[in-house]
Design a protein around this nucleic acid. Sequence first.
DNA 1: CTGTTAGCGCGTTCAC
DNA 2: GTGAACGCGCTAACAG
Lengths: 323, 323
Amino acid sequence: MADLARAVGVSKSTVSRAFSRPDMLNPETVDRIAEVAARIGYRPNRAARALSTGRHGNIGMVVPDIANPFFPPLIRAGQVEADRSDFCVFLGNSDEDPEQEDRLVSHFLSQVSGLLLIASRLDEDRIRAYADLCPLVLVNRDVAGIPRILIDSGPAVAEAVRHLHSLGHERIIYVSGPPKSWSEQERRAAAKAEAERLGMSLTVVPVTKPAYETGLELAPPVLDSGATAAVAFDDITAHGLMTGLSHRGVAIPKDFSLVGCDDVLGARTNPPMTTVTTSSEEAGRCAIAMLLALIAGAVPQGTLRTISTRLVLRGTTGPAPQR
Amino acid sequence: MADLARAVGVSKSTVSRAFSRPDMLNPETVDRIAEVAARIGYRPNRAARALSTGRHGNIGMVVPDIANPFFPPLIRAGQVEADRSDFCVFLGNSDEDPEQEDRLVSHFLSQVSGLLLIASRLDEDRIRAYADLCPLVLVNRDVAGIPRILIDSGPAVAEAVRHLHSLGHERIIYVSGPPKSWSEQERRAAAKAEAERLGMSLTVVPVTKPAYETGLELAPPVLDSGATAAVAFDDITAHGLMTGLSHRGVAIPKDFSLVGCDDVLGARTNPPMTTVTTSSEEAGRCAIAMLLALIAGAVPQGTLRTISTRLVLRGTTGPAPQR
DNA sequence: CTGTTAGCGCGTTCAC
DNA sequence: GTGAACGCGCTAACAG
């Protein structure tokens, strides 16, 4: 910066202003500085700027599992939205582990202007503590007083249960997801409540990590249960279950009906999966927009934004088989 | 930091050392400092540390498309490997656009110790210029003199062509990928060379963006071509093509054979896809390891690491249909 | 083993 | 409209 200033024949302050507040300078001065800067390859140092202003221009984002297909579109949309405001984004993978998440957040803390925790597995206390230290937005985690975006899949899951009921299913299964997941809690509660209301029997099959293989292995117990339909925490697990059932000669939807969640597979399975769809892109975009607003001091604490979902009827649900 | 020092009754330097070079201090001093630090909530400021040392402890990573399922496992493995050395990772999505990639890199530049460009779409000159400014590792991009990791899919693609030849196919199609992609160039060249060597006819179908929908729309032209088999740039496009063909009553592999690349679908399609498999996790891990070594000054410029691939025979390839 | 001093590159008061 | 001086939080010599 000093070199640039000398080369142009101005002071360092003028160079600084040319990049951060060009409106304060004579346009000609700005042009001259920009020109010489390009020639000698000067670029403002974001780290130094951050130290001086306290504004880092970075945001930190943590997800439970980057490789889970639900997250990449969300991450992508968030990154793009952040970039529109010249923010860089740190990405961390917590691997569903609160301690790992804590580790990541603490590493981000001193170099970001804001934190975006997606499906956070952290304690409420911990989240509150971080929110005290740094603007923080939650996605799919409901902590009162903290700005958050919730993809509200409960109603659509309830609708899925009603749908199965109307098809004559009486005994159904809920294939659960990660126990610490807010979405999981919502979905399970919605499924349970609706099944109970309709007088259906609902069995919860616990699952630690949602995965195709998990679903595959679930086929025998699901068959043994005597249920005629299942609602799964996510499409990936549902897909595995679907394949596992097929391998055992169970035709879908003739012999067994299946509903997934998240719609990450579209109509790519055979038959195409009935599922709960939503826009994770929108969630990512909104979350970053809210975080940027929060950083700018323009968001009331405790703001809650809900993103709707709906049941998409495709080919994996059909009338309950006759006994 | 000054507060902490005062509270403990030592100087700032001692506090500094307690966190960065604890071995230089009396263990008791370190303990005392750690204890008080925890109590008053002091955490070293990474941004300030970076300004002083020039070591940022961050690395910047750019991919063409986060949502393309080939990348998330790679990103994840890279992030995890970086974390093992306490490095944070910036992630950027170039959207296949060289200018966007340039933009991201220039934003990362002043706050990272290293850059990892995955399937970079940047000019060779630009890459060289950045490599001059900052330790830089390439994945799936071959620039002489720049450390790089190449997933060498050419041989396996050639093998796929041989496989189709041995099944009696004489006219095949290569469904291409992003024109600027190194992998695409390798695969296309390998397919062309091997087809020519075996006296097969090979038609290249150009595609701008690999996607399921792209593949779907390719079904009519592929059928019209009179070819009996296709090798596709990636599994996603192949999957779309497979579905598109099925919708038109073409049985796979009876009427048409199909080979994908990347093995991102595993055996989840029906029939399971014959494809070129590799470990993108390994690529991500190695790339970060190489980058960290480069940052530490322990890698000769121009290091080249190759990751092997192999053809996995599953259910989408079979004997050429009789005329 | 620990304290002192001088910057790292920049933004931001103030003067002018 | 522009320049000079200070400080952001920390590390790196250099003393002691």
